[in-house]
Design a binder for these strands. Structure first.
Lengths: 117, 117
DNA sequence: ACCACGTGCAACCATGAAGTTGCATCTACC
DNA sequence: GGTAGATGCAACTTCATGGTTGCACGTGGT
């Protein structure tokens, strides 16, 4: 249950790692706004070099969060909601799991206290 | 909309950064299972030193994912679902946002294609 | 009082990741 | 064919972070 099956869109691990970087989140935000954009165009807006952007895009691509397709001499990148969606679901599943366990523990604690009295 | 208000349980940034580390996720898993545990006990189970565990717990605490309360000479840590829940919601909001924008873009692309014909 | 156990603090090391620069390569256009 | 714009690749620097060890400090039990 902790270890996700390999069938998932991408490992939760890679998605979280990708999302952890602020620059990468900003990149995703730009991509979601612009639709399809090239790395050079993104680098023009952001305060980093094109190469840095390319590396970030590679990470995001590995996490399945973006995908780039070649058009002539340029590569247009676009956002892929699927991977993010999978991780969001994983996360809320985890929340309910924690809630369940915490409730159970609280239950135990109360009954134990009752035994003491 | 990209910058969350300070009122949130904790910055989405810190939660994601905290969650990005596998060891920290494992730690959370253990905490969710055991209810309340001390750093030393956790270090006994995990393949790292107690100090490493303490550092990780500090990060998780800063992200609002766990909280420790002192009981005598030991500190018991427990998991806090609230912060995770907030981040999960943030994430699914982002997903719907992307979906919305992608739909709009697709719409534009189709009408443009129609103009070409 | 004393001892043991748990925590807190600080210095230190090593690895990886973000960023840079420079150059090679490919494609489009004239 | 030649040139300009865009990408791809590689080496290098810097710095944050995960990990370690060693020791000092509190607190609880005998």
């Amino acid at each position: 249950m902790t270890q996700e099956p390999p069938g998932a869109v991408a490992t939760v691990d890679s998605v979280l790692a990708a999302l952890a970087d602020p620059m990468r989140r900003r990149l995703l935000d730009l991509l979601a706004t612009s639709g399809e954009t090239t790395a050079t165009a993104l680098a023009g807006v952001l305060p980093v070099s094109r190469q840095a952007v390319v590396k970030h895009l590679a990470v995001l691509d590995a996490a399945g969060l973006v995908s780039g397709n070649r058009v002539g001499r340029e590569v247009r990148y676009a956002v892929c909601p699927a991977a993010l969606d999978a991780t969001a679901q994983w996360m809320s599943a985890l929340v309910s799991d924690w809630d369940r366990r915490l409730a159970a523990i609280k239950q135990l604690a109360e009954s134990a206290e009752r035994d003491v009295r």
